[in-house]
Design a protein around this nucleic acid. Structure first.
Length: 950
DNA sequence: GAGCACTGC
């Protein structure tokens, strides 16, 4: 079984190419077990960050404004395009993303379409296998060519050439052409050229195919057909061969020669060229942490402080802070800015006038930094130096240096709109541009205007210091060098077809020929990590003692804590550790001993479409800033090397400088509510550093109005004021506020807490899925709905006195439950604050459901004849997520918690609803006609009918 | 009958 699986896994290939700025084309040849899937190349364009931006921002400037015709058609076509995009996306994921032993799930129609297209693509006399190889080869050659082509229209035309298009595709192409015409008019695009077939594949001269694809064919030969004894013998031999080859080729390949006898095979050794060196910045003497034989621990710490790169700049910095109100500080990692600057300020007497606050994007950072500073100052943590994070306020009246998370400072604004108790605010790691920092910028800039005594320090990484400076009215930039080792950066010489595979080969190459040192590989998600883990284990097993041991450590946020600890264990002598990580390793955690970084150049990014209210989590190319950050992870304890699985051209021309800030790709309802409760009414003119799309702002206002948090003039209502107290999504806050009316606040805050910990409550290990599912079913008995099931889980856990054992028995993640308990405790405290009586009525599920409906009435959907659902407002077809307890029950009307796009539009966390509740609870939003069934359809069962038709 | 990058309040 495992072997079969391995075969399937290795049969999936993805061709990933950077084509033009910010845009990627993925072409995936999905090799299923059946012919039909074999030759189909599904071409899809992942929405780039740029495109995501376009989802939310109408860029009328892109097209001619005067031409209404084009404008409206464009809008229509854009929808079509998006739709087609999603469909392709879905198909693509079906085919390869899940990597299971199942056929891609396709409708009958799609299937026929695929077969038809496959046939159109295929010559009769070529074996399908060779055909695939050839296609990948063609793809590769074409993509190389396309690197020079600056427009994707040509691309589309080529792809669809000779293939009958679906209606949607045709429309899309028409749209693209129209844009192309416009582009040609307005842009200088001379360099667009026609694509020509590679010479080797002209009509007659198909030369030496057998040899050219020998390795590929060997690899993909059906294991059952040839060698029955050991289906992997071939593959293993081949892999060994590959590794041998990799050793020879690595880093020493003559490029010219390579170009001459260019033979492309899958997973060839990967050639890298060293393109640049990220300079280490260091003072010659100060490099190794000095450990002078100091007399006491405290003075030793004081001496150590003086070795930090920032120390020589102390006086200069203090002078600058004295002279200017706002300063942008550019401090490389390891310069000591986070720990030292607040201390300098303290020593210079700023703390006499008020606190020094320093914000961090992460909780752990706030805690660990404050602990370090307390140690250096020789005081107890929580006295002069403290930290404040959610659930934990470790400060006292004495506290003068306060480290906190940025969200926490934002919350403090609510109680102290002028930050009167602070004399200095330092926004650290500002380049990360979290939602909270972006809002803080606007607020802090605003109060600095009338609080001239308030000093602002904005600390950022190099790349965008000037942007920060511009934003803060040309604030001076103060640069502090860091302490960092040089990192060699290597790019591939040609674009890599399959980044997963390229990463694996690269890891093996490093392992075989590079000096000792651990490897860090950046992947996009849990699934990819598991795949790579499996393949690496398999490939190294075959090698036995020929190579040193390779210890594979996966790390991602949802990994149970005890397994996470593995990455911090020191590597045994003679072995090498390879850490397979998600973005978590980019900023959130630091692993010592990493010397090599493998960076495929992708990560998952969440984006939000304000028009449909749907969120999606898609793979996107990273930004240059991210790439630098990743590379820097290898130079922390010594000189490092970074292997980028893309070309230098890609890096320079295709990657965006910075990741699109979160504020431009998220649901802003919460932001708007916060700002409104701070008394900021003119949101459109609020001084955002990067303003969010106005469409998203409007959507948020609309949503808050519907929740009656705002009145028709856009002012905060009493309900809104209460909602703003809760650190939750406004819909959840509304649900809690509404629970007062239905006398079930106890239950509702449990549900809110459980919902806000996310989807990590139920643990479902691969090998015990059946048990886990059975355990979960117990909580769903009676088709009560997912929200009630979550409530059941929480209550059961509480009854066992928060037992860990109980969690294990029921396949529930303890960590998530503890978090839910913390959140619930906090919410309970806040109930009192907004004067909602804790009331409980466990028997009355309808009351609970009504409270939920009060918050989530937007999210209603109705069953269609087809078995799918349709959302009531902004109609679109959606489905109940299979993990839901109601997946088999299919109630006529449902309320869902969230809509996510994966393989389909799925509603996650669903409860049944009586349609007349919608009119009862949200009469301003729903009218009778919305919930009445039209004449041709059956009326909802039960009592609803009489009431509705009267 | 699917699959969730990462924070944060």
């Amino acid at each position: 079984m495992l072997m079969m699986k391995m075969m399937i896994i290795t049969k999936f290939r993805v061709v990933v190419k950077f084509l033009r700025k910010g845009k990627l084309v993925f072409a995936r040849s999905a090799l299923g077990r059946k012919e039909k899937a074999v030759t189909l190349n599904i071409l899809l364009q992942a929405p780039s960050t740029k495109e995501n931006e376009r989802h939310v921002r109408r860029r009328t400037s892109d097209v001619d404004n005067d031409d209404d015709d084009i404008e409206s058609e464009e809008a229509m076509l854009r929808d079509q395009e998006e739709r087609a995009q999603l469909e392709r996306n879905i198909r693509e994921r079906d085919a390869a993303g899940t990597r299971k032993l199942t056929e891609p799930k396709l409708s009958k129609k799609d299937e026929e379409e695929m077969i038809r297209r496959s046939k159109a693509l295929e010559d009769d006399d070529t074996s399908s296998l060779r055909k695939v190889s050839r296609q990948v080869y063609l793809q590769k050659r074409r993509d190389q060519k396309l690197l020079e082509i600056r427009d994707d229209i040509i691309d589309h035309e080529y792809i669809f050439e000779g293939v009958k298009l679906t209606e949607a595709e045709e429309r899309e192409l028409r749209y693209k052409k129209k844009i192309y015409e416009l582009a040609k008019e307005h842009l200088d695009v001379d360099d667009i050229s026609e694509y020509k077939m590679p010479e080797a594949y002209d009509q007659d001269g198909v030369v030496n195919q057998e040899k050219r694809f020998a390795a590929a064919i060997q690899r993909y030969r059906d294991p059952g057909a040839g060698d029955k004894m050991n289906p992997f013998a071939e593959q293993e031999a081949w892999e060994e061969h590959q590794i041998g080859k990799a050793t020879l080729k690595f880093g020493s390949k003559d490029k010219k020669q390579a170009a001459d006898d260019y033979q492309y095979v899958f997973e060839d050794g990967i050639d890298f060229i060293k393109e640049s060196v990220m300079d280490g910045i260091q003072d010659e003497d100060a490099m190794p942490p000095e450990s002078p034989g100091a007399s006491s621990a405290k003075s030793m710490l004081q001496d150590e402080r003086k070795t930090l790169p920032i120390y020589p700049y102390r006086e200069e910095l203090l002078q600058a802070i004295n002279d200017h109100q706002v300063i942008v500080i550019v401090g490389e990692t390891g310069s000591g800015k986070t720990t030292q600057i607040p201390q300098y300020l303290h020593e210079a007497g700023y703390t006499k006038r008020g606190k020094v606050g320093c914000t961090q994007p992460r909780r752990v950072a706030a805690m660990s930094v404050s602990a370090r500073v307390a140690q250096e100052m020789g005081v107890k943590l929580g006295h002069e130096v403290g930290y404040s994070i959610r659930f934990e306020d470790c400060t006292s009246e004495k506290t003068v240096l306060k480290y906190m998370t940025d969200g926490m400072l934002l919350r403090e604004f609510l109680g102290e709109p002028d930050l009167a108790s602070y004399s200095v605010v330092m926004v650290d790691e500002a380049h990360e541009r979290t939602l909270s920092t972006d809002i803080l910028f606007g607020l802090v800039k605003d109060i600095a205007r009338f609080r001239k005594d308030l000093k602002l320090l904005i600390s950022s990484a190099t790349l965008d210091a000037e942007k920060f400076s511009d934003y803060f009215d040309s604030a001076p930039i103060f640069k502090i060098p860091g302490r960092r080792y040089p990192v060699d950066i290597h790019f591939t010489t040609a674009p890599e077809a399959d980044y997963i595979d390229a990463a694996i080969v690269t890891v093996l190459q490093i392992h075989v020929i590079q000096p000792p040192g651990d490897i860090l590989v950046f992947l996009t998600g849990q699934e990819e990590i598991e795949t790579v883990d499996e393949i690496l284990k398999h490939r190294t097993r075959g090698l036995g003692t020929k190579i040193a041991e390779l210890i594979i450590c996966p790390i991602y946020a949802n990994l149970p804590t005890e397994l996470q600890a593995k990455i911090f264990e020191p590597t045994p002598e003679g072995a090498r550790k390879v850490v397979l990580a998600t973005n978590i390793a980019e900023t959130s955690l630091t692993i010592d001993g990493i010397k090599y970084v493998v960076d495929p150049g992708f990560c998952k990014i969440k984006s939000y479409n304000p028009r449909t209210g749907m969120e999606s989590l898609l793979v996107n190319p990273i930004s240059k800033a991210s790439a630098m950050q990743r590379a820097g992870r290898s130079g922390r304890t010594g000189p490092g090397k970074c292997f980028r699985l893309y070309t230098a051209y890609n890096y320079h021309h295709d990657l965006e400088d910075n990741t699109v800030p979160e504020i431009q790709r998220t649901n802003l309802a919460n932001v708007v509510l916060t700002l409104k409760s701070l008394g900021i009414h003119d949101l459109v003119n609020f001084d955002f550093m990067d303003p969010p799309p106005s469409e998203a702002l409007l959507k948020a206002l609309e949503q808050l109005f519907a929740l009656s948090a705002l009145n028709s003039r856009g002012e905060l209502t009493k309900v809104g004021r209460r909602m703003a107290e809760f650190p939750l999504d406004p819909m959840l806050s509304k649900m809690i506020v509404a629970s007062e009316k239905y006398k079930c606040s106890e239950e509702v805050i449990s549900i809110a807490a459980m919902l806000s910990v996310g989807n990590s409550i139920f643990y479902r290990p691969k090998d015990k899925q059946v048990h886990a599912d059975n355990a979960r079913k117990n909580f769903h008995s009676g088709f009560v709905g997912d929200h009630i099931a979550l409530l059941n889980v929480y209550n059961c856990w509480k009854e066992t006195d928060f037992s860990t054992q109980w969690c294990y028995e029921n396949y529930i993640q303890v960590r998530s439950m503890k978090r839910a308990r913390d959140i619930r405790d906090q919410l309970e405290g806040l109930l009192e604050r907004v004067e909602i009586e804790p009331t409980s009525n466990p028997g009355d599920l309808d009351a609970i459901k009504k409270a939920i409906t009060s918050g989530f009435f937007h999210h209603s959907a109705k069953l269609q004849k087809s078995g799918a659902y349709r959302t009531v407002k902004n109609p679109q077809t959606v489905h109940i997520h299979p993990s839901s307890g109601l997946a088999e029950y299919h109630p006529r009307w449902v309320i869902y918690h969230e809509l996510v796009l994966t393989t389909k539009e799925y509603m996650r966390q669903v409860i049944e609803l009586k349609p007349d509740w919608l009119v009862e609870i949200a009469p301003h939003y729903y009218q009778l006609k919305d919930v009445e069934d039209s004449g041709t359809k059956k009326l909802p069962r039960g009592e609803g009918r009489a009431e509705m038709t009267q």
